[in-house]
Design a protein around this nucleic acid. Sequence first.
DNA 1: TTTCCTTACGCCTATCGTAAGCATA
DNA 2: TATGCTTACGATAGGCGTAAGGAAA
Lengths: 300, 300
Amino acid sequence: MVTLAQLACFIAVAEELHFGRAAERLRMTQPPLSRQIQLLERHLGAPLLDRSSRSVRLTPAGRAFLDDARRILRDTERATLAVRQIGAGTSGTLRIGFTAGSAHSGLQDVLQLARAELPSVAVDLRELVTQKQHEALSEGAIDLGIARPASRPPHLSFRALYEEPFVAAVPVGHPLSSGDEPLPLTALHQINAVMYSPIDSRYFHDLLTRAFSDLGVIPQAVQHLSQIHSMLALVQAGWGLALVPRSATRMRFEGVRYRPLRADVPLKASLELVWRSANDSPALLRLLELLPAPDDDARP
Amino acid sequence: MVTLAQLACFIAVAEELHFGRAAERLRMTQPPLSRQIQLLERHLGAPLLDRSSRSVRLTPAGRAFLDDARRILRDTERATLAVRQIGAGTSGTLRIGFTAGSAHSGLQDVLQLARAELPSVAVDLRELVTQKQHEALSEGAIDLGIARPASRPPHLSFRALYEEPFVAAVPVGHPLSSGDEPLPLTALHQINAVMYSPIDSRYFHDLLTRAFSDLGVIPQAVQHLSQIHSMLALVQAGWGLALVPRSATRMRFEGVRYRPLRADVPLKASLELVWRSANDSPALLRLLELLPAPDDDARP
DNA sequence: TTTCCTTACGCCTATCGTAAGCATA
DNA sequence: TATGCTTACGATAGGCGTAAGGAAA
């Protein structure tokens, strides 16, 4: 079989048109170089070089083969580099699932890091609720999920990503819309509130329901929704107030005021990273290495 | 350095996903195959296969590299074949010079043979008088000439290609246009004749001049031309008769009759192949091998 | 006579095959 | 226990380097 080393030998001789100089370039002596060229010619079944003891010239076949040999070697070089990069996790594709709410917080951190540290990694994003992310991970449809805490099947791995408090979104003019001090949760007793769907936003629903019942607070649920921006639209229309993760305050709604809750309110919205434990994607492993521990609520 | 053999090993394992079957396909035993894969992975700096003792799967890097490896091997295969064909003279390009007159005879034989036996060889044709062909051959501008006999510089090689007698082209109504018996050359004594240019058709000019003077025949030259079809046009117009190579009878001119010359007339128009002795074009050498010895005047 | 490609030959590295090792279902 | 990849090891083939050969200017 023809070898890549033989191609390199031929290219050197074809470019130098001199066995001695070509051998020097290849860090070897002339005789083995001659032999390699002879072997190559025998393998190919045609002479590539016309060599009298005083000159070396390319045959027509050699001219044609030179281009091919150069391309083959370049291609091999390129493929080697590509594999090295993919293996190092600095190249390839990363499919990331995220919940709608994480678009304001955790997802941005992950994307920023990926773009900064793994610029050659292509990122595929798809918005999925937590349960759908778990399914997609199990099927290998995505590599990484940014999801709310939920059940923890053993074949998936988890890591805390982000935690933030809730704030109250209050329509301007509402009795609770005035005042600057943080609100206690008890302020919501008997108050009209837009709540989370127990099905599509089960995590938030359960979280708030538990917190309210622990304190004996009973808000008046006027609607159950799953998308935060829809809830804020209802708040804006004056239906009532809503409790949303603080990062949602990045959405500015005319006529909606955000008020922080008192520090003793035990409500935290968490995001976590989820991946299939058996996933060997170098890009995923590299990203997980790079992602720092969650820095709590250092941001708005 | 990565070797093509290693690429072949990897492709086999990647396709079989089983070292044993892959080794069988490669006509070798498993252990060296395992070792080659290990070496390849070390060279590349990244694992290509994820193998537990019960299953073999491709890593992301392996998936990407598989395509590259396949392409590199295919490319090498293709280049090998191409070089073999060029070396065998069954591919490549052949630049052929020819004299206008040879278009009716020798050139057609050469082209027919090339098309039949060397279908992958591209043929470049250019019409050149004999002297220009010699120059073009010396400069390497053409590979093969189809020319009239002339000087024989030592760096050019020659071979007789075709030989044919002359015929007389006579305008209908001319005294010599009637009768079926071959004409003797003496019939042209004192007769109006269209002759060949001593410059551009030196070969024909010298040939006829010598034949006439040997017999003491003196035709009346009414014009000197170099292109046979121009001479026939003058014959058609009644200026006189002309002696043309028999293959020119393939040109049918209304009002022109061709009469053969007597067999004892020592007039033969020759064509020869000319090439640069140092030309190593396999296509040329192959064509020269294939071209039979001239078969004299077996054709019209 | 010099240049420079080729042939000859000994050494050594690398691959192969056989055999044993070892993990997993 | 059987399957199947890996490690160990001896034999061999092929490549490299040194030295000698041979053709051309």
